[in-house]
Nucleic acid binder design. Structure first.
Lengths: 319, 319
DNA sequence: TTGTATGCGTTATCAC
DNA sequence: GTGATAACGCATACAA
């Protein structure tokens, strides 16, 4: 494995000159430059990038923390991040956590160890304090509204979005509205819960804990939702489903079960995935790819910034 | 930023001893060990992993090349790889290529530069010779049958699978069978094409170039397929669809267009994704997660090995 | 059981 | 323009 020292010897110059040539620095005579380049060719030389990393204290590696990369929501986010990473010559190190806290901590650890320059956390289960602790080791960017905190974030206002979707359903005559989320404990879910409670309160509607269905993430979870609903004595007449995947699953299941949509059950999905368009599902569009891009840019930026992205309801045939 | 030299000074020992303690090597007196550990704590020390990489010549980073991480096929593969990576303390560096050759080369370059220890290529567009060239820099593992070549691979026999699916449809009375693939140029597609040609030949059926539809990757591509079929004078009565996503899209579109399945059009999907189960789509199950795991193990193994995984037809309602 | 000295491959500083 | 030489931070052969 040849190194710059070898090259220097071969070209009859110093390592400094070799380094200069290799990094396109000015002030090097043409003939010496040529000699070095020749040496590079004949020796089949290539840099050891780890040495560069050590010397520079930078790896051009960006960590991305997400629970599941096989879910369209995160896949889209990742797509945006990857797109921007490519443009900025960064590589992505994937931390697929399955919401296991230790794996999130592992990502933070990698930041500390300088294996990655910065970290994008798309969704987390660990404590915020834990993240704050690691902020000294490099930029960490989140996907949630954390006004006033000392780190960057890109997010949508889940409270407002949820509230408006509920109002929309209410205006269509629904007063028994249920909703499906991925997990109860997430920060987004808590915002949605607040919106739900506030909405019920303002509209003077009763709260029915049955109407909150969690663990809804994938297409196939739609079946579970319908099963649950069928067991209810007073089932909801409308559903807010925080993933088009699940909405599509519910929709498909309803067709099989002769449940008419939107008459028997209205559905609003989230994310505006292609499947929602094809199935003509009313949904809330969230600019995930754009968010991903912005997350990346924030992660390589010196400054802390907070960016709220806007979402919009797309009226189609299910609500 | 404190380093082992500092620790050594603080603990009153040599750097060697510090290194020993840090790496749990034997032969170090308890009191010295304690002194070092104390120094670590008070100084908030942490390794610079790049230095470790440089010194050891190993990064515990595995490259993964795939065209789209937002497609369930690759997402499942990735899931398997990630699972195994976790168990072996490796991190994954994602190269999302969109089948752009230069991005594949970039991954190979990273192997050469020692940023990653080895490379898993889930699907490629670059020349095989290009891969062979980089084999000296570390293990490269592929997802295709390359008998006799000097690198590891995990794959399914796409020729046989395709042939048998065709026979199955034929036995059900179909003689006008079309098929949908992602791209024409892939190695898998070529095998399928061979199977298709051979099947037609043996069954003495005519070849109709219209029946081969490419660029079918996502759910929404199902619409395009139906549009194409509707324009044909003698449309196929059965379809082999190399992704359940697309099969589901076709299925959904058919419902809307009053095309009866399987009577007007029979469909066999691929991969046995959850969506296929829910929509009761006949499909060919491919053990993607298992394949991913095996790919990873091959990538960290010293020996070259080739593993064929078996697929199986799952009969459901669409064929 | 411990320490010295050297290697890993680059980049950066500074003198010439 | 160019070249010694010192970082960068850790691991380890070898000596003691």
């Amino acid at each position: 494995m040849t190194n710059i020292k070898d090259l220097a010897r071969m070209a009859g110059v110093s390592v400094t000159t070799v380094s200069r040539v290799l990094n396109n620095h000015p002030y090097v005579r043409e003939d010496k430059k040529k000699a070095v380049l020749d040496a590079v060719r004949t020796s089949n030389y290539h840099k050891n990038i780890n040495a560069v990393h050590l010397s520079k204290g930078k790896t051009f590696l960006m960590g991305v923390v997400l629970p599941f990369s096989d879910h369209p929501y995160f896949a889209q986010l990742l797509k945006g991040i990857a797109k921007q990473a490519l443009e900025n010559n960064y590589k992505l190190v994937l931390f697929q956590t399955s919401y296991i806290e230790s794996r999130e901590l592992e990502a933070l650890e990698m930041l500390k160890l300088k294996q990655i320059d910065s970290l994008i956390i798309c969704s987390r289960t660990c404590d915020f304090a834990m993240i704050e602790e690691h902020l000294t080791f490099g930029p960490i960017v989140l996907c949630e509204d954390l006004h006033g905190k000392n780190l960057s974030a890109t997010y949508v206002d889940h409270y407002r979005i949820f509230y408006e979707a509920l109002k929309y359903l209410h205006s269509k005559g629904h007063s028994r509205i249920g909703y499906c989320i991925a997990r109860k404990s997430g920060t987004n879910s808590q915002k949605r819960m607040s919106a739900y409670r506030d909405f019920l309160h303002h509209s003077q509607l009763p709260y029915n804990p049955e109407y909150l269905m969690d663990d809804c993430l994938y297409f196939q979870d739609g079946e579970k939702v319908i099963r649950q609903i069928k067991e209810m004595i007073t089932p909801p007449t409308a559903l807010l489903v925080t993933s088009d995947q699940v909405a599509a699953g519910i929709f498909t299941c309803c067709q099989r079960e002769q449940i008419s949509i939107p008459d028997d059950l209205a559905i609003i999905g989230f994310d505006n995935e292609p499947i929602a368009k094809m199935m003509n599902i009313t949904t809330v569009e969230i600019p995930l790819v754009e968010m991903g891009k912005n997350l990346f840019l924030q992660a390589i930026s010196e400054q802390v910034s907070n960016k709220e992205m806007s979402a919009k309801l797309i009226e189609r045939g299910t609500a």
